[in-house]
Design a protein around this nucleic acid. Sequence first.
DNA 1: TGAAACATACCAGATGGTCGGTTTGTTTTT
DNA 2: AAAAACAAACCGACCATCTGGTATGTTTCA
Lengths: 188, 188
Amino acid sequence: MSESHERKKQPEIVRRALLDCAAQISLEQGLPAMTLQAVADAAHVTKGGLLHHFPNKQALVQAVFQDLLEQLDAEIDELLAEDPESHGRFTRAYIRAFATAESQGAANWNALPLSSLTDPEMKTMWSQWYAARLERHAETDSGPNLGIARYAADGLWLAGFLEYSGVEAETREALAEHLLSLTFKDKT
Amino acid sequence: MSESHERKKQPEIVRRALLDCAAQISLEQGLPAMTLQAVADAAHVTKGGLLHHFPNKQALVQAVFQDLLEQLDAEIDELLAEDPESHGRFTRAYIRAFATAESQGAANWNALPLSSLTDPEMKTMWSQWYAARLERHAETDSGPNLGIARYAADGLWLAGFLEYSGVEAETREALAEHLLSLTFKDKT
DNA sequence: TGAAACATACCAGATGGTCGGTTTGTTTTT
DNA sequence: AAAAACAAACCGACCATCTGGTATGTTTCA
Protein backbone atom coordinates (compact mmCIF):
# COMPACT_ATOMS: atom_id res chain seq x y z
CA MET A 1 0.00 0.00 0.00
CA SER A 2 3.00 2.32 0.50
CA GLU A 3 3.55 4.58 -2.46
CA SER A 4 7.17 3.62 -2.81
CA HIS A 5 7.18 4.29 -6.47
CA GLU A 6 10.50 5.97 -6.90
CA ARG A 7 12.32 5.06 -3.74
CA LYS A 8 15.98 4.34 -3.77
CA LYS A 9 17.02 0.83 -2.97
CA GLN A 10 16.29 -0.11 0.58
CA PRO A 11 16.54 -3.87 0.80
CA GLU A 12 15.55 -4.09 4.43
CA ILE A 13 12.34 -2.27 3.80
CA VAL A 14 11.56 -4.53 0.86
CA ARG A 15 12.34 -7.59 2.89
CA ARG A 16 10.10 -6.38 5.66
CA ALA A 17 7.30 -5.68 3.20
CA LEU A 18 7.67 -9.16 1.76
CA LEU A 19 7.41 -10.76 5.18
CA ASP A 20 4.41 -8.66 6.13
CA CYS A 21 2.57 -9.24 2.89
CA ALA A 22 3.25 -12.95 3.00
CA ALA A 23 1.92 -13.17 6.53
CA GLN A 24 -1.13 -11.16 5.66
CA ILE A 25 -1.97 -13.23 2.62
CA SER A 26 -1.60 -16.50 4.45
CA LEU A 27 -3.76 -15.06 7.20
CA GLU A 28 -6.57 -13.78 5.03
CA GLN A 29 -6.60 -16.23 2.16
CA GLY A 30 -4.90 -19.25 3.57
CA LEU A 31 -1.48 -20.65 3.03
CA PRO A 32 -2.21 -22.25 -0.35
CA ALA A 33 -2.97 -18.76 -1.69
CA MET A 34 0.43 -17.53 -0.61
CA THR A 35 2.15 -17.96 -3.94
CA LEU A 36 5.40 -16.28 -4.85
CA GLN A 37 3.63 -14.17 -7.43
CA ALA A 38 0.96 -13.01 -5.03
CA VAL A 39 3.47 -12.06 -2.37
CA ALA A 40 5.69 -10.30 -4.87
CA ASP A 41 2.76 -8.35 -6.29
CA ALA A 42 1.53 -7.32 -2.87
CA ALA A 43 4.98 -6.02 -2.00
CA HIS A 44 5.37 -4.24 -5.33
CA VAL A 45 8.31 -6.35 -6.37
CA THR A 46 8.80 -8.84 -9.15
CA LYS A 47 9.06 -12.51 -8.49
CA GLY A 48 12.74 -12.29 -9.33
CA GLY A 49 13.21 -9.65 -6.70
CA LEU A 50 11.46 -11.79 -4.15
CA LEU A 51 13.61 -14.78 -4.98
CA HIS A 52 16.66 -12.62 -4.46
CA HIS A 53 15.73 -12.13 -0.83
CA PHE A 54 14.56 -15.69 -0.28
CA PRO A 55 16.18 -18.41 -2.39
CA ASN A 56 13.02 -20.54 -2.50
CA LYS A 57 9.53 -20.68 -1.16
CA GLN A 58 10.33 -22.79 1.83
CA ALA A 59 12.86 -20.22 2.93
CA LEU A 60 10.22 -17.54 2.59
CA VAL A 61 7.64 -19.38 4.62
CA GLN A 62 10.15 -20.27 7.26
CA ALA A 63 11.37 -16.69 7.49
CA VAL A 64 7.82 -15.47 7.86
CA PHE A 65 7.21 -17.90 10.65
CA GLN A 66 10.40 -17.08 12.48
CA ASP A 67 9.66 -13.40 12.17
CA LEU A 68 6.22 -13.88 13.63
CA LEU A 69 7.68 -15.88 16.47
CA GLU A 70 10.08 -13.06 17.27
CA GLN A 71 7.29 -10.52 17.24
CA LEU A 72 5.30 -12.68 19.60
CA ASP A 73 8.32 -13.09 21.81
CA ALA A 74 8.77 -9.34 22.06
CA GLU A 75 5.10 -8.82 22.78
CA ILE A 76 5.18 -11.40 25.55
CA ASP A 77 8.26 -9.86 27.10
CA GLU A 78 6.63 -6.47 27.07
CA LEU A 79 3.52 -7.79 28.77
CA LEU A 80 5.64 -9.61 31.31
CA ALA A 81 7.39 -6.41 32.29
CA GLU A 82 4.11 -4.64 32.93
CA ASP A 83 2.80 -7.31 35.28
CA PRO A 84 3.60 -6.72 38.98
CA GLU A 85 2.22 -10.01 40.23
CA SER A 86 4.68 -12.85 39.81
CA HIS A 87 2.44 -15.90 40.05
CA GLY A 88 0.94 -16.75 36.68
CA ARG A 89 2.70 -13.89 34.98
CA PHE A 90 3.52 -15.70 31.79
CA THR A 91 0.07 -17.19 31.55
CA ARG A 92 -1.49 -13.76 31.74
CA ALA A 93 0.86 -12.42 29.10
CA TYR A 94 -0.03 -15.38 26.93
CA ILE A 95 -3.74 -14.78 27.38
CA ARG A 96 -3.41 -11.09 26.68
CA ALA A 97 -1.32 -11.71 23.61
CA PHE A 98 -3.64 -14.25 22.08
CA ALA A 99 -7.15 -13.83 23.33
CA THR A 100 -7.50 -10.16 23.97
CA ALA A 101 -9.02 -7.65 21.62
CA GLU A 102 -6.20 -5.20 21.06
CA SER A 103 -4.03 -7.96 19.73
CA GLN A 104 -6.75 -9.29 17.48
CA GLY A 105 -6.37 -6.51 14.95
CA ALA A 106 -3.08 -5.37 13.58
CA ALA A 107 -0.87 -8.09 14.95
CA ASN A 108 -0.39 -10.38 12.04
CA TRP A 109 1.30 -13.07 14.09
CA ASN A 110 -2.21 -14.24 14.67
CA ALA A 111 -1.60 -16.25 11.55
CA LEU A 112 1.09 -18.09 13.41
CA PRO A 113 -0.40 -21.36 14.57
CA LEU A 114 -2.45 -21.39 11.43
CA SER A 115 0.56 -22.01 9.24
CA SER A 116 2.13 -24.22 11.82
CA LEU A 117 -0.70 -26.67 11.59
CA THR A 118 0.26 -27.48 8.07
CA ASP A 119 4.00 -27.70 7.93
CA PRO A 120 5.70 -30.24 10.19
CA GLU A 121 8.84 -28.16 10.36
CA MET A 122 6.93 -25.29 11.90
CA LYS A 123 5.20 -27.58 14.26
CA THR A 124 8.56 -28.24 15.86
CA MET A 125 9.49 -24.57 15.75
CA TRP A 126 6.36 -23.66 17.61
CA SER A 127 6.45 -26.45 20.13
CA GLN A 128 10.08 -25.68 20.86
CA TRP A 129 9.29 -22.05 21.47
CA TYR A 130 6.42 -22.99 23.70
CA ALA A 131 8.40 -25.59 25.62
CA ALA A 132 11.25 -23.15 26.14
CA ARG A 133 8.88 -20.53 27.47
CA LEU A 134 7.22 -22.98 29.81
CA GLU A 135 10.52 -24.11 31.21
CA ARG A 136 11.68 -20.54 31.61
CA HIS A 137 8.58 -19.65 33.59
CA ALA A 138 8.24 -22.93 35.40
CA GLU A 139 8.41 -21.37 38.86
CA THR A 140 5.66 -18.86 38.26
CA ASP A 141 3.43 -20.67 35.78
CA SER A 142 3.13 -24.31 36.71
CA GLY A 143 0.06 -26.19 37.76
CA PRO A 144 -2.97 -27.54 35.92
CA ASN A 145 -5.19 -24.52 36.40
CA LEU A 146 -2.79 -22.16 34.69
CA GLY A 147 -2.33 -24.73 31.96
CA ILE A 148 -6.06 -24.88 31.44
CA ALA A 149 -6.19 -21.11 31.30
CA ARG A 150 -3.60 -21.09 28.54
CA TYR A 151 -5.40 -23.81 26.63
CA ALA A 152 -8.61 -21.87 26.94
CA ALA A 153 -6.79 -18.86 25.54
CA ASP A 154 -5.81 -20.96 22.55
CA GLY A 155 -9.40 -22.00 22.07
CA LEU A 156 -10.54 -18.45 22.44
CA TRP A 157 -8.08 -17.29 19.85
CA LEU A 158 -9.23 -20.04 17.55
CA ALA A 159 -12.82 -19.03 18.02
CA GLY A 160 -12.08 -15.43 17.17
CA PHE A 161 -10.50 -16.78 14.09
CA LEU A 162 -13.34 -18.94 12.92
CA GLU A 163 -16.22 -16.55 13.29
CA TYR A 164 -15.11 -13.52 11.36
CA SER A 165 -18.53 -12.07 12.07
CA GLY A 166 -17.57 -9.89 15.00
CA VAL A 167 -20.82 -10.48 16.84
CA GLU A 168 -19.25 -12.51 19.59
CA ALA A 169 -16.26 -10.25 20.02
CA GLU A 170 -17.49 -8.79 23.29
CA THR A 171 -18.37 -12.17 24.68
CA ARG A 172 -14.93 -13.44 23.97
CA GLU A 173 -13.42 -10.34 25.46
CA ALA A 174 -15.36 -10.92 28.65
CA LEU A 175 -14.23 -14.53 28.73
CA ALA A 176 -10.64 -13.40 28.31
CA GLU A 177 -11.04 -11.14 31.33
CA HIS A 178 -12.49 -14.03 33.25
CA LEU A 179 -9.50 -16.14 32.28
CA LEU A 180 -7.16 -13.48 33.54
CA SER A 181 -8.93 -13.38 36.87
CA LEU A 182 -8.55 -17.13 37.12
CA THR A 183 -4.79 -16.82 36.98
CA PHE A 184 -4.80 -14.83 40.22
CA LYS A 185 -7.04 -16.82 42.47
CA ASP A 186 -5.30 -20.04 41.57
CA LYS A 187 -5.66 -22.63 44.27
CA THR A 188 -3.57 -25.62 43.33
CA MET B 1 -4.21 -49.62 1.89
CA SER B 2 -7.09 -51.99 1.26
CA GLU B 3 -6.14 -54.64 -1.24
CA SER B 4 -9.13 -54.02 -3.46
CA HIS B 5 -7.24 -55.06 -6.51
CA GLU B 6 -9.81 -57.04 -8.38
CA ARG B 7 -13.00 -56.05 -6.71
CA LYS B 8 -16.13 -55.61 -8.70
CA LYS B 9 -17.48 -52.14 -9.01
CA GLN B 10 -18.68 -50.76 -5.73
CA PRO B 11 -19.08 -47.04 -6.14
CA GLU B 12 -20.03 -46.37 -2.55
CA ILE B 13 -16.89 -47.99 -1.28
CA VAL B 14 -14.81 -45.99 -3.70
CA ARG B 15 -16.54 -42.81 -2.69
CA ARG B 16 -15.90 -43.58 0.94
CA ALA B 17 -12.26 -44.30 0.24
CA LEU B 18 -11.95 -41.02 -1.58
CA LEU B 19 -13.41 -39.09 1.31
CA ASP B 20 -11.23 -40.86 3.85
CA CYS B 21 -8.04 -40.47 1.86
CA ALA B 22 -8.73 -36.83 1.19
CA ALA B 23 -9.31 -36.18 4.86
CA GLN B 24 -6.19 -38.07 5.83
CA ILE B 25 -4.00 -36.22 3.36
CA SER B 26 -5.25 -32.84 4.41
CA LEU B 27 -4.70 -33.88 7.99
CA GLU B 28 -1.17 -35.16 7.62
CA GLN B 29 0.23 -33.00 4.87
CA GLY B 30 -1.98 -29.98 4.91
CA LEU B 31 -4.71 -28.84 2.64
CA PRO B 32 -2.42 -27.52 -0.11
CA ALA B 33 -1.09 -31.05 -0.53
CA MET B 34 -4.57 -32.40 -1.07
CA THR B 35 -4.49 -32.40 -4.86
CA LEU B 36 -6.84 -34.39 -7.03
CA GLN B 37 -4.00 -36.59 -8.16
CA ALA B 38 -2.81 -37.32 -4.66
CA VAL B 39 -6.29 -38.22 -3.46
CA ALA B 40 -6.97 -40.37 -6.50
CA ASP B 41 -3.68 -42.21 -6.08
CA ALA B 42 -4.26 -42.81 -2.39
CA ALA B 43 -7.68 -44.27 -3.15
CA HIS B 44 -6.33 -46.39 -6.01
CA VAL B 45 -8.40 -44.59 -8.58
CA THR B 46 -7.50 -42.39 -11.49
CA LYS B 47 -8.15 -38.71 -11.50
CA GLY B 48 -10.95 -39.29 -13.97
CA GLY B 49 -12.57 -41.74 -11.61
CA LEU B 50 -12.37 -39.23 -8.83
CA LEU B 51 -13.91 -36.53 -10.96
CA HIS B 52 -16.76 -38.87 -11.73
CA HIS B 53 -17.74 -38.90 -8.08
CA PHE B 54 -17.04 -35.24 -7.44
CA PRO B 55 -17.45 -32.86 -10.39
CA ASN B 56 -14.72 -30.52 -9.20
CA LYS B 57 -12.32 -29.97 -6.38
CA GLN B 58 -14.50 -27.64 -4.42
CA ALA B 59 -17.22 -30.27 -4.36
CA LEU B 60 -14.71 -32.78 -3.08
CA VAL B 61 -13.42 -30.56 -0.31
CA GLN B 62 -16.90 -29.60 0.68
CA ALA B 63 -18.05 -33.21 0.73
CA VAL B 64 -15.10 -34.16 2.88
CA PHE B 65 -15.89 -31.42 5.32
CA GLN B 66 -19.55 -32.21 5.49
CA ASP B 67 -18.78 -35.87 5.98
CA LEU B 68 -16.46 -35.07 8.84
CA LEU B 69 -19.10 -32.86 10.37
CA GLU B 70 -21.62 -35.68 10.21
CA GLN B 71 -19.19 -38.09 11.82
CA LEU B 72 -18.56 -35.62 14.59
CA ASP B 73 -22.25 -35.07 15.00
CA ALA B 74 -22.86 -38.77 15.40
CA GLU B 75 -20.02 -39.09 17.88
CA ILE B 76 -21.38 -36.25 19.94
CA ASP B 77 -24.88 -37.72 19.96
CA GLU B 78 -23.51 -41.04 21.09
CA LEU B 79 -21.61 -39.43 23.95
CA LEU B 80 -24.67 -37.41 24.89
CA ALA B 81 -26.75 -40.55 25.21
CA GLU B 82 -24.25 -42.14 27.58
CA ASP B 83 -24.23 -39.19 29.97
CA PRO B 84 -26.76 -39.40 32.82
CA GLU B 85 -26.08 -35.95 34.21
CA SER B 86 -27.96 -33.25 32.34
CA HIS B 87 -26.04 -30.14 33.33
CA GLY B 88 -23.04 -29.60 31.06
CA ARG B 89 -23.82 -32.66 29.02
CA PHE B 90 -22.91 -31.25 25.68
CA THR B 91 -19.75 -29.67 27.02
CA ARG B 92 -18.59 -33.02 28.33
CA ALA B 93 -19.35 -34.70 25.04
CA TYR B 94 -17.44 -31.97 23.28
CA ILE B 95 -14.45 -32.39 25.54
CA ARG B 96 -14.49 -36.14 25.19
CA ALA B 97 -14.76 -35.93 21.44
CA PHE B 98 -11.93 -33.51 20.97
CA ALA B 99 -9.52 -33.63 23.85
CA THR B 100 -9.60 -37.21 24.92
CA ALA B 101 -7.13 -39.86 23.89
CA GLU B 102 -9.35 -42.43 22.26
CA SER B 103 -10.54 -39.87 19.75
CA GLN B 104 -7.07 -38.60 19.04
CA GLY B 105 -6.08 -41.59 17.00
CA ALA B 106 -8.20 -43.04 14.27
CA ALA B 107 -10.85 -40.39 14.11
CA ASN B 108 -9.94 -38.37 11.08
CA TRP B 109 -12.46 -35.65 11.78
CA ASN B 110 -9.74 -34.24 13.91
CA ALA B 111 -8.68 -32.55 10.73
CA LEU B 112 -11.89 -30.62 10.77
CA PRO B 113 -11.02 -27.29 12.35
CA LEU B 114 -7.70 -27.51 10.59
CA SER B 115 -9.26 -27.27 7.18
CA SER B 116 -11.78 -24.78 8.39
CA LEU B 117 -9.03 -22.37 9.26
CA THR B 118 -8.04 -22.13 5.66
CA ASP B 119 -11.19 -21.97 3.65
CA PRO B 120 -13.70 -19.21 4.43
CA GLU B 121 -16.58 -21.34 3.24
CA MET B 122 -15.81 -23.95 5.84
CA LYS B 123 -15.40 -21.35 8.47
CA THR B 124 -19.08 -20.62 8.12
CA MET B 125 -19.98 -24.30 7.94
CA TRP B 126 -18.19 -24.93 11.20
CA SER B 127 -19.42 -21.88 13.03
CA GLN B 128 -22.96 -22.67 11.94
CA TRP B 129 -22.67 -26.18 13.25
CA TYR B 130 -21.24 -24.95 16.50
CA ALA B 131 -23.82 -22.20 16.90
CA ALA B 132 -26.64 -24.65 16.21
CA ARG B 133 -25.30 -27.06 18.81
CA LEU B 134 -24.94 -24.33 21.38
CA GLU B 135 -28.47 -23.17 20.85
CA ARG B 136 -29.76 -26.69 21.00
CA HIS B 137 -28.08 -27.27 24.34
CA ALA B 138 -28.58 -23.81 25.71
CA GLU B 139 -30.49 -25.01 28.76
CA THR B 140 -27.87 -27.48 29.87
CA ASP B 141 -24.65 -25.87 28.64
CA SER B 142 -24.75 -22.15 29.21
CA GLY B 143 -22.56 -20.05 31.43
CA PRO B 144 -18.98 -18.82 31.16
CA ASN B 145 -17.36 -21.71 33.00
CA LEU B 146 -18.67 -24.29 30.60
CA GLY B 147 -17.65 -22.06 27.74
CA ILE B 148 -14.15 -21.87 29.10
CA ALA B 149 -14.08 -25.62 29.46
CA ARG B 150 -14.97 -26.00 25.81
CA TYR B 151 -12.40 -23.45 24.75
CA ALA B 152 -9.82 -25.26 26.81
CA ALA B 153 -10.79 -28.46 25.04
CA ASP B 154 -10.11 -26.73 21.74
CA GLY B 155 -6.73 -25.63 22.97
CA LEU B 156 -6.01 -29.10 24.24
CA TRP B 157 -6.90 -30.59 20.91
CA LEU B 158 -4.70 -28.08 19.20
CA ALA B 159 -1.83 -28.93 21.50
CA GLY B 160 -2.16 -32.61 20.78
CA PHE B 161 -1.98 -31.65 17.19
CA LEU B 162 1.14 -29.55 17.32
CA GLU B 163 3.40 -31.78 19.35
CA TYR B 164 3.36 -35.05 17.54
CA SER B 165 5.97 -36.24 20.00
CA GLY B 166 3.63 -38.14 22.25
CA VAL B 167 5.53 -37.26 25.39
CA GLU B 168 2.86 -34.99 26.73
CA ALA B 169 -0.01 -37.27 25.86
CA GLU B 170 -0.62 -38.36 29.45
CA THR B 171 -0.43 -34.84 30.73
CA ARG B 172 -3.05 -33.74 28.29
CA GLU B 173 -5.18 -36.71 29.15
CA ALA B 174 -5.08 -35.74 32.78
CA LEU B 175 -6.01 -32.20 31.93
CA ALA B 176 -8.94 -33.47 29.90
CA GLU B 177 -10.15 -35.37 32.96
CA HIS B 178 -9.77 -32.26 35.02
CA LEU B 179 -11.84 -30.36 32.49
CA LEU B 180 -14.55 -32.96 32.69
CA SER B 181 -14.67 -32.64 36.45
CA LEU B 182 -15.03 -28.90 36.09
CA THR B 183 -18.23 -29.33 34.13
CA PHE B 184 -19.88 -30.96 37.14
CA LYS B 185 -19.00 -28.66 39.98
CA ASP B 186 -19.97 -25.63 38.03
CA LYS B 187 -20.79 -22.68 40.23
CA THR B 188 -22.05 -19.88 38.09
C1' DT C 1 -28.96 -52.31 -24.56
C1' DG C 2 -28.01 -48.64 -22.04
C1' DA C 3 -26.51 -46.33 -18.16
C1' DA C 4 -23.34 -46.02 -14.59
C1' DA C 5 -18.44 -46.59 -13.21
C1' DC C 6 -14.43 -46.10 -14.31
C1' DA C 7 -9.69 -45.26 -17.35
C1' DT C 8 -6.84 -42.73 -20.85
C1' DA C 9 -5.38 -38.87 -23.22
C1' DC C 10 -4.99 -34.35 -23.36
C1' DC C 11 -5.15 -29.16 -22.48
C1' DA C 12 -4.72 -24.30 -20.85
C1' DG C 13 -3.15 -22.03 -17.07
C1' DA C 14 -0.53 -21.41 -12.93
C1' DT C 15 3.42 -22.54 -10.05
C1' DG C 16 8.06 -22.65 -8.33
C1' DG C 17 12.39 -21.84 -9.95
C1' DT C 18 16.59 -20.51 -13.18
C1' DC C 19 19.29 -17.31 -15.80
C1' DG C 20 21.16 -13.29 -18.00
C1' DG C 21 21.08 -8.70 -17.72
C1' DT C 22 20.42 -3.79 -15.78
C1' DT C 23 20.33 -0.54 -12.27
C1' DT C 24 21.96 1.24 -7.91
C1' DG C 25 25.17 1.66 -4.08
C1' DT C 26 29.74 1.00 -2.05
C1' DT C 27 34.54 0.47 -2.00
C1' DT C 28 39.02 0.99 -3.88
C1' DT C 29 42.39 3.12 -6.62
C1' DT C 30 44.64 6.98 -8.55
C1' DA D 1 37.82 14.14 -5.85
C1' DA D 2 36.87 11.41 -9.74
C1' DA D 3 36.82 7.32 -11.83
C1' DA D 4 37.26 2.59 -12.02
C1' DA D 5 35.90 -1.96 -9.91
C1' DC D 6 32.98 -4.57 -7.55
C1' DA D 7 28.85 -6.28 -5.31
C1' DA D 8 24.27 -6.04 -4.03
C1' DA D 9 19.37 -5.24 -5.47
C1' DC D 10 16.20 -6.02 -8.72
C1' DC D 11 13.90 -6.95 -13.32
C1' DG D 12 12.03 -9.72 -17.27
C1' DA D 13 11.93 -13.58 -19.92
C1' DC D 14 11.93 -18.24 -19.93
C1' DC D 15 11.23 -23.32 -18.52
C1' DA D 16 9.74 -27.85 -16.57
C1' DT D 17 6.31 -29.41 -13.89
C1' DC D 18 2.01 -29.76 -11.87
C1' DT D 19 -2.63 -28.08 -11.33
C1' DG D 20 -7.69 -28.58 -12.09
C1' DG D 21 -10.60 -29.74 -15.71
C1' DT D 22 -12.55 -31.74 -20.28
C1' DA D 23 -13.45 -34.94 -23.80
C1' DT D 24 -13.54 -39.45 -25.15
C1' DG D 25 -13.11 -43.83 -24.73
C1' DT D 26 -13.67 -48.77 -22.33
C1' DT D 27 -15.47 -51.87 -18.94
C1' DT D 28 -18.98 -53.46 -15.73
C1' DC D 29 -23.56 -53.99 -14.04
C1' DA D 30 -28.79 -54.03 -14.23
